[in-house]
Amino acid sequence: MSRRELIQRRLLDEGSVSSAALAEEFSVSLMTIYRDLDYLQTLGLAKRKSGGAVLRQRFFTAEQDSEDTPNIQSAKERIGHYAAHHLVDGKEGAIIIGAGTTTLEMARALPDLPINVMANSLAALGALSLHQHTKLYALGGELRKDIMAFGGTMAHANLKTYHFSKAFIGIDGIDADAALTSGNELNARLTELMAEHAEEVYLLADVRKFGQRAFRHVLSLSQINGIITDQEIPKPFLELCEEHHVQVMIADSTNKED
């Protein structure tokens, strides 16, 4: 394992590192450690501070996801397009698409296939309503006006009566210890049920979500089949995915038009 990978591990385990201590531990100069920390900062894992670095956004709040930049929006579009065109075909029995900004991009990019599609987001339902061949189903239940998606006990009861070949979900954070996490209890429970009633589960998440943790555990890596993201993920997370037999798919700009 390289020095930078070991520093990543330290950040994930302890939440902060000291430049001086790292320089002494690895017998390198402070300038070398500064370059290592700068590199980790570009990955979105670390935030430089005087004397070292801290793990960037150790705890995630749902409001943070609403502050998307054009680059982040582009990443979500690529992820959604990849999932829609590489993981869904006309042979699917039924799929379910969870609520979220990245899963919404998948709904918008989904080809008009003769399959059953269920969604709980009003925006996703609106996009899919333009299809001529897709059989579209709304999850139903209480409409949560904060995210314009269905939830609550009625939605849970409805969901338990269905079975899906694939579920496409989003989350707020992917943590090396807590796995997949959410900042919203109601959405977390709905996501758990989607996973329980699907043969395969795919997570759509941009690279910012790696190394973040929200307060509610949703699923472990062993409960999903694949992750679609927008660029190479940090090595510790890649190793965790390999350990749990989770396929990692990169939706970069070169395959947007596939």
Rank of each mutant, 00 (worst) to 15 (best):
S27C: 07
D13H: 06
D38H: 01
F59D: 08
D38V: 03
K76V: 15
S66Y: 06
G15S: 08
S18A: 05
T32S: 09
R48P: 02
L22K: 11
Q73K: 12
L40R: 04
S50Q: 12
A75Y: 05
G52E: 03
R58K: 15
A75K: 13
D36S: 13
P70L: 09
G51Q: 09
Y39Q: 09
V17E: 00
L43Y: 10
Q57K: 07
A53Q: 05
T61R: 11
T69N: 14
E63N: 11
K49E: 12
R35A: 05
G15D: 09
A75E: 13
R78G: 00
D68L: 15
A75Q: 13
A62L: 12
G15H: 09
L40T: 07
S16C: 04
Y34E: 06
L40A: 07
S50H: 14
L43K: 15
E24L: 01
N71W: 06
E63L: 09
I33D: 02
A23M: 07
A62D: 05
T42D: 09
K49M: 11
A75G: 01
T32W: 01
F59N: 13
L22M: 11
D65P: 00
D68A: 13
S74T: 15
V17W: 01
N71P: 00
Q73Y: 08
P70Q: 13
K49C: 03
H81Q: 10
T61D: 10
A20Y: 07
T32H: 00
F59L: 10
M31D: 10
L22W: 10
A75R: 11
Q73D: 09
D13N: 10
F59W: 14
H81C: 08
F59K: 14
S74Q: 15
P70D: 12
D36G: 08
E77L: 07
L30P: 01
V54S: 09
V54P: 05
Q73H: 06
T61H: 10
D65I: 07
A53H: 03
S29Y: 10
Y34T: 01
Q64M: 14
I79L: 05
Y39F: 14
Q64L: 15
A62Y: 00
R58H: 06
